[in-house]
Design a protein around this nucleic acid. Structure first.
Lengths: 301, 301
DNA sequence: GTCACCCATGAAAGATATTTTCGTTTCGGT
DNA sequence: ACCGAAACGAAAATATCTTTCATGGGTGAC
């Protein structure tokens, strides 16, 4: 019934390539070579033994096993099994649909199609990679918070505002901060039971980490929404929500896909909180809907 | 060395059960027990080692291997890989069945799955419904504009800011306005060759229509991004970009899907403009990337 | 610039899993 | 009951996977 999200979305397949991308930064060079080989040709690698794959990638067995571990499997044997599953799925028709990057001379219709496809992919990857336990914990914290501060800069700042707008609509007290100084100043006011959320794709944006650290020190429940689960920001985060990292191209900066991913996480948080606080959220939602409808009706023309 | 993968997964997926039936007569009793176990629960057996499967079926390792051979595999290892593939296929065959609305008592994992699915749907709808001619025209206007003003209120305001941020990154002059008065004040400054973009889901948000009207009257090229192609806002729009309108539910306000849809349109605009102005856009993108990299503390590997 | 330290890496030892061998058991036929 | 052939499993042999450990290269501190 409630089968794991991972399995719903392209199974290990979609999420494996995504996992490789997400984890690549925390991998050593040789491990990256292995990960690449695996993501590039799952079927081929499934036919190889540890030794074979080690030779293919010009590394050692130990490195292959290490990579398998990092990808979340207990050992190479299990990675191999997963690869076999993936290979079978690919074989069975569902083409991997390796879209080429958006090129400078692509006609506009292609641009639309490719962008839509890539963003869909991003959504699937994000959903697959999201830790529902962490998400649940964050939701619980939010639902019971006295107040919530959200930190984000640049593109992430917009996501922070989006979350804030939503939370306000269901009657929670939330503020978005994109000014680092004000953010810190406000973070000092937080206390246990409050929630602070930092949104940063790189996980290394000092201006966002700093207020989260302050909030953390103050005893507030802290949440990080980042694409790098091992980045500095997570060290002050009680709960880490991982967004997906897709390959960045010149015409499609990382900010673009990370935004899509972050927004999905934010939506999940919102809906989760709305569920938990349904009795108060529902009337609040209805009220704000009413108020807006009125505003539309009354406007001229 | 293991045999080629193609042979392992040869033939249609469910052929294993059939093969078991065909070969059953030529099997000994213990082998039949093994074959039955394998055909009955491929996924479960895939998780077992030879020894495990031998114990489960009350036989010996040798018998398991013999059965694997009879089924056409070079050994148990390969049978196991095939089983894993089969299990994966079975798994993915199960329809998502997440078409129902999000309910108050949905577990968090379902929420994630449903939200992701719905947003994917929204993207597909938007891409399908987008008029590429209109989009192309808007892109051309933007690429040649002296300056661009973007109007949006509430959730659409964030989308407006997103577009603005992007355009600024490729060296265009763009401003987002969410204050109706300031928006109008600025719209007055526009002249032919400039571009004004109004973003509103309902198409009836007076505060956004008004500045667009002013810009239109001033001779600027006007664009409307709206979910209602027949709404008031389009009357002052030279180009109308339609976003998709999905059904609204209590826990998932319209703002949520319209935002996804609007962002896709905005991304298309951005990439389109970046293509047209590639020679100046590429260096600008690289430069802003560089500048940001410095703001991030040394990223850990 | 030098030193000390840490971390990535692969070689090889150690542990598991798979395959093979071979002797025992079982069963049908005479 | 006896013989022979096939079925079967225990255990040896082999392949495969995992862990340990020594080495070298790079990095930061001084």
């Amino acid at each position: 019934m409630t089968q794991d999200v991972k399995e719903i979305f392209g199974g290990p397949g979609g999420s494996l390539a995504a996992k490789v991308r997400t984890l690549a930064p925390s991998m050593t060079r040789s491990m990256q070579r292995v990960a690449e080989a695996v993501a590039g040709d799952p079927a081929g690698c499934a036919a190889l033994t540890v030794t074979g794959l080690a030779e293919l990638t010009g590394t050692s067995e130990a490195t292959v096993v290490r990579t398998a571990r990092l990808l979340g499997y207990p050992g190479y044997r299990d990675l191999r099994l997963a690869l076999a599953g993936l290979a079978a799925q690919q074989q069975s028709g569902r083409a991997p649909a390796i879209t080429t990057d958006i090129a400078v001379d692509d006609p506009i219709a292609d641009v639309v199609a490719k962008l839509a496809y890539e963003e869909q992919q991003t959504l699937a990857d994000t959903a697959a990679g999201l830790d529902t336990a962490q998400l649940g914990a964050a939701v619980t914290a939010l639902a019971g918070a006295r107040r919530t501060d959200v930190y984000g800069i640049g593109a992430s700042g917009l996501v922070a505002q989006d979350l804030t707008q939503k939370l306000l609509r269901i009657g929670l007290i939330a503020h978005a901060h994109s000014d680092p100084h004000l953010a810190v100043t406000n973070a000092v006011q937080l206390r246990p039971g409050d929630v602070a959320i930092a949104i940063t794709h790189s996980g290394s944006t000092g201006d966002v980490i700093e207020p989260l650290r302050v909030a953390f020190d103050r005893g507030a429940t802290t949440v990080a929404i980042t694409g790098r689960p091992d980045s500095p920001v997570t060290q002050y985060a009680d709960h880490v929500l991982t967004t997906s990292t897709s390959r960045e191209t010149e015409l499609r900066p990382a900010a673009m896909s990370s935004r899509t991913s972050q927004l999905l996480v934010v939506d999940c948080l919102f809906v989760g909180v709305a569920q938990r606080t349904y009795d108060s959220a529902a009337p609040a939602l209805a009220a704000s809907y009413e108020a807006l409808a009125h505003r539309h009706r009354s406007t001229p023309r």
